[in-house]
């Protein structure tokens, strides 16, 4: 039977806990920037959702009627759009961190004339 402290605080637990102090990245500013980018992404996503909702409402009603926005927000079409967008948007936003440069290398740049 283990002592409670030993159960929780073995070497790997201590190592990972101490890594929290680095805020995950080698430079703590990266964590700050990530926080801003993801928050900004959230605003963009919400805005996109609002626009889509408005578009669907206008298409369905011909004009903005009293319940058009609310109805569009609850619609099956909106749910379908959200499901598609949540996947593709998340992928597009996060992929550059681990694959930051998808551009082809130019021999002229490598030579540094």
């Amino acid at each position: 039977m283990q002592d409670d402290k030993n159960v929780a605080m073995d070497k790997v637990y201590e190592l990972i806990s101490s890594a929290q102090g680095r805020e995950f990245f080698n430079h703590p500013d990266t964590a700050r920037l990530m926080g801003m980018i993801v928050a900004l992404g959230g605003e963009v996503f919400v805005l996109k959702a609002q626009v889509e909702r408005l578009t669907q409402a206008l298409m369905k009603s011909g004009a903005v009627a009293e319940n058009a926005l609310a109805e569009a927000g609850q619609s099956k079409d909106m749910a379908v759009w959200i499901a598609r967008e949540e996947k593709t948007f998340g992928e597009a936003l996060l992929r550059p961190f681990v694959n930051p440069d998808l551009g082809a290398a130019s021999p002229f740049m490598e030579r540094k004339p």
């Binding site: 993801v38 992404g41 959230g42 996503f45 919400v46 959702a49 959200i82 967008e85 949540e86 996947k87 593709t88 948007f89 998340g90 992928e91 936003l93 996060l94 992929r95």
Partner: peptide, 9 residues
């Protein structure tokens, strides 16, 4: 939904 999308990736 946005957060779910990021979690999905």
């Amino acid at each position: 939904s946005y957060v779910r999308g990021l979690k999905g990736w």
